[in-house]
Design a protein around this nucleic acid. Structure first.
Length: 607
DNA sequence: CCGACAGCCCAACATT
DNA sequence: AATGTTGGGCTG
């Protein structure tokens, strides 16, 4: 720490495993820090590219250091070290693929506090004043805590993060410094360019691929998308007992492998290949040459499914080996999942829309033919989405027959992913509740599980889920019905008598753009953000905005500025209803009948 | 130097 | 009041 004339307070840390070293000048402090940095092969930061290393570099220059004396090299968007690898964990955790696939969406906001809270169960230290006003003791504790969080983010769980970084760096053929700063498209570009060089291929320019392969031939279902994607089967509403969920193992990578798909082989120049059509498109695939992507992605797929995935579950291996296999198989999954999508992304250097389109088209072909075959075998089909189908289970033999059929007729590996004691489907797609044989409940897409809804709804919904988890047979539903009814009525009563706190009533929505960036309309979370900005609280893109619905003003208020008295009970009553109706619909339970909702809602004008 | 893809649901907003 | 659009959050 730097001794300052204006600093006050004691210098104790309250910990005997660390002590504070004081410096009388900033130059001495920096010298010592630079010496320390040079002693390590890795330096971890959180936002060091944009702040810490940049700041240190500039302070040093200002204080008269020469560039040789500073162990930092600044790039335009990154900061490197002369000796050692600088990993900016902010950049790595910001990567959507890392966030979603590697960490299962556990952290919401990409801040040190939010990530460490989610992964380490510890957040940043709260401080009593702005950083520049802290006592020696509090400042030191605050900085130490930040440092420990950053380091622990690479240490927890047997150093999974460093293992993941190592695995992804090897798969992508990128140095750790580059891999941790790039998105999946950068990783896959590097991997494919390396393969071009190994084979002596000339790497095409983006516009060369574009001009020779042209564009798409299907129409997307969603306006503004470039081509038609996966197929979603209309669910058969109702409760279905003994349902098996089958899915294709790594569907899109498997399609690229078995259909010889790549930018060179799609729409190839040979006249004789033109009859080798991709179903549901105007495209054809080469019969003369093998596609590099097909082989590369196919091999990675096989490595994952046949080597790393089985070993990640092998009880004979040490914990350390198990975690390595687990990390590699999930790293491969991240890369494989993106390997089709990048060809449909216009910024990808080998962008090839007809290729991406063809992969999705074969996917639809595969699932729809499998569904037809299932029906032909007398198996009921309840639902399906992209690569999965929900089937009745007349007998194990029938499912085996279907799996075998898929292998011989489609060359696709279909497998039983899970089996449900029962599944509740409404008529909504991408919305269901399934109870597994071990009472575990899977909930997909239902409002009750979404992150932005108020805590009180999540809690009530969780209770509903636990009731449904105990249902073993159709006859159990009548008891469950009574308990659900009590649950919902209880929630109404608490709402009406204002027993829920403002925090429990708060919606938490991520604001995707800067507050001023909303020109087309003004959604509620933006209205709340505007009010916060007015009172001096800054709101940036990516922040969570907490607000409640009120009867005053524009109908919403930030939690900080609201009071319990102005809560819009009617609006919340509507939310309880719509959240629960989604599930009850599927169970064929009438909401109004269950709760006597008509009578209840009469208490709330506007409900 | 860099953000993989499409499809679906819901609530609120804007427009007709 | 009916209808289309936007934005967020989700599935795969």
């Amino acid at each position: 720490m730097l001794r300052r004339s204006d600093s006050v307070g004691d210098a104790g840390l309250g910990r005997d495993d660390f002590e504070i070293e004081f410096f009388d000048s900033e130059a001495e402090l920096l010298s010592s820090l630079f010496k320390t940095i040079n002693g390590y092969p890795f330096v971890l930061t959180f936002n060091g590219d944009d702040f810490d290393l940049r700041y240190l570099f500039n302070r040093a220059l200002k204080l008269g250091f020469t560039r040789e004396q500073i162990p930092i090299e600044l790039g335009r968007e990154s900061a490197g070290l002369k000796y050692g690898v600088h990993i900016d964990l902010y950049k790595f955790f910001f990567n959507r693929s890392i966030q979603v696939y590697a960490f299962g969406n556990k952290y919401r906001e990409v801040t040190l506090d939010s990530i460490s809270e989610a992964l380490l169960d510890t957040g940043k230290l709260e401080i009593s004043a702005s950083v520049s006003r802290l006592s020696y003791s509090e400042l030191a504790s605050y900085c130490l805590q930040d440092s420990e969080l950053v380091q622990n983010l690479t240490r927890f769980d047997g150093e999974v993060v460093m293992k993941l970084i190592t695995a992804l760096s090897r798969i992508s053929y990128l140095p750790i410094e580059d891999m941790t700063r790039q998105g999946v498209s950068g990783w896959i570009r590097s991997m494919m360019f390396k393969e071009h060089r190994d084979r002596g291929y000339i790497i095409p320019r983006s516009e060369e691929v574009r001009n020779s392969k042209g564009s798409t031939s299907t129409t997307a279902i969603i306006k503004g998308k470039k081509y038609k994607g996966g197929m979603v089967v209309d669910p058969v509403p109702g409760v279905h007992f003994n349902v098996a969920v089958l899915d294709f193992a790594s569907l899109y990578p498997s399609i690229m492998k078995t259909w010889n798909l790549g930018y060179e082989t799609i729409l190839c120049p040979h006249p004789e290949c033109r009859k080798n059509r991709v179903p549901d498109t105007d495209h054809w695939v080469c019969t003369q040459r093998k596609a590099m992507e097909s082989q590369l992605i196919g091999s990675l797929r096989d490595l994952r499914i046949k080597w790393y995935k089985p070993r990640s579950k092998d009880r004979g291996l040490s914990a350390n080996m198990l975690s390595w296999y687990q990390v590699v198989q999930s790293a491969l999954k991240v890369v494989l999942n993106a390997s089709y999508g990048v060809f449909g992304a216009d910024r990808f250097s080998l962008y090839c829309p007809p290729l991406a389109e063809s992969v999705a088209a074969v996917g639809r072909y595969s699932i729809s033919n499998t569904i037809n075959e299932a029906k032909r075998l007398g198996i009921e089909v309840f639902y399906g989405d992209t690569d999965s189908i929900f089937l009745g289970t007349p007998s194990i033999g029938k499912l085996e027959e279907l799996i075998q059929w898929s292998k011989t007729k489609l060359s696709m590996e279909l497998e039983v992913d899970k089996s449900y004691r029962y599944v509740a489907l409404s008529s909504r797609k991408k919305n269901y509740l399934g109870v597994q044989d071990d009472n575990r409940v899977d909930i997909k897409g239902l409002t009750g599980k979404k992150r932005h809804i108020p805590e009180f709804l999540k809690m009530t919904f969780a209770s509903l889920v636990s009731i449904l988890g105990q249902v073993k047979s159709p006859s159990d539903f009548s008891e469950a019905r009574g308990r659900i009814s009590d649950l919902v009525k209880d929630s109404y009563a608490k709402l009406k008598s204002r027993k829920y706190s403002l925090d429990e009533l708060a919606f938490n929505m991520m604001i995707g753009k800067a507050v001023g960036g909303y020109t087309k309309n003004t959604p509620q979370h933006v209205k709340a953000a505007q009010q916060l900005t007015k009172t001096g609280t800054e709101i940036k893109a990516g922040d969570l905005v907490s607000f409640v619905k009120v009867v005053t003003g524009t109908g919403v208020k930030p939690v900080k500025l609201a009071s319990l008295q102005e809560i819009d009970v009617g609006k919340y009553a509507e939310y309880i209803r719509s959240t629960f109706e989604q599930v009850l619909d599927a169970l064929e339970i009438d909401y109004e009948e269950l709760t006597g909702a008509k009578k209840l809602e009469a208490f709330f004008p506007g409900a």
